[in-house]
């Protein structure tokens, strides 16, 4: 008797929990109803590219000028030229430069950017275009457009895809050692552990200038 009461109560609790845990619907009905959480990352990224990113490329800071400022006053350089969505030491800069291609590698093209401010070797990424540098470098992304971080990250993914498929291939096909190139892109720097010897540029615009050396 005691056992049956115990099991009876347990069953009752299980039934109450189950009743309050799940609900059933027709799958076709659910599929037909418009999803409130749909986000078209490709469309958003395209619009961002055309209306914010590329029109704002003239705001990019010249790479040698930035390096000089970083060496002279790191805090000022980060405050005036870097952007990031989160807190932390990693921040992004939109940079531009012009220089000679010194090496064409499998994954990167090395360019020595030259200007009145000096010379700075940089590696332009042509294979591993990942991360949030391009999305965040201008500080123009509007967080209120997103209901989840997944959507925000998918914008980076789409921008990087666009670079891999549209920006890099024509450049990589014609880039040769000794050629001059004008570039605009995003770089990532750690303000606490600053390293200026291996700067990697995620390109947004790449233009070969002048005649090919061969």
């Amino acid at each position: 008797m005691k056992k049956s009461i115990k099991y009876g109560i347990m069953l009752l609790v299980a039934l109450v929990l189950a009743y309050n845990s799940v609900y059933f619907k027709s799958l076709s009905e659910v599929k037909a109803s418009p999803a409130s959480d749909q986000f078209d990352a490709a469309t958003y990224a395209n619009k961002f590219w055309n209306t914010k990113l590329t029109p704002g490329l003239n705001q990019a800071v010249e790479i040698n000028a930035l390096i000089s400022l970083l060496k002279a006053d790191k805090a000022a350089a980060f405050t005036s030229h870097s952007h990031a969505l989160g807190i932390g030491n990693i921040r992004y800069f939109l940079v531009k430069g012009e220089g000679e291609i010194t090496a064409v590698g499998e994954n990167t093209v090395t360019v020595v950017a030259t200007s009145e401010e000096g010379q700075q070797p940089v590696k332009i990424e042509t294979e591993f275009v990942y991360g949030n540098a391009v999305r965040d470098a201008q500080g123009l992304i509007d967080l209120t457009d997103f209901t989840s971080t997944m959507h925000l990250n998918s914008v980076s993914e789409e921008l990087n895809k666009k670079i891999r498929t549209e920006v890099v291939p024509p450049f990589k096909a014609n880039a040769k050692k000794g050629q001059q190139v004008q570039f605009v892109g995003a770089i990532e720097l750690n303000q606490e552990h600053l390293r200026l010897d291996e700067i990697e540029v995620m390109p947004v615009s790449l233009e070969l200038v002048g005649a090919s050396p061969n």
Partner: peptide, 22 residues
Amino acid sequence: FGLEIPALDMFIGFTVLGAILA
């Protein structure tokens, strides 16, 4: 996302309690 069972044309939605218990 709940659980979808296409063979039965059934969608099982979970409340917060249900998802926690699962």
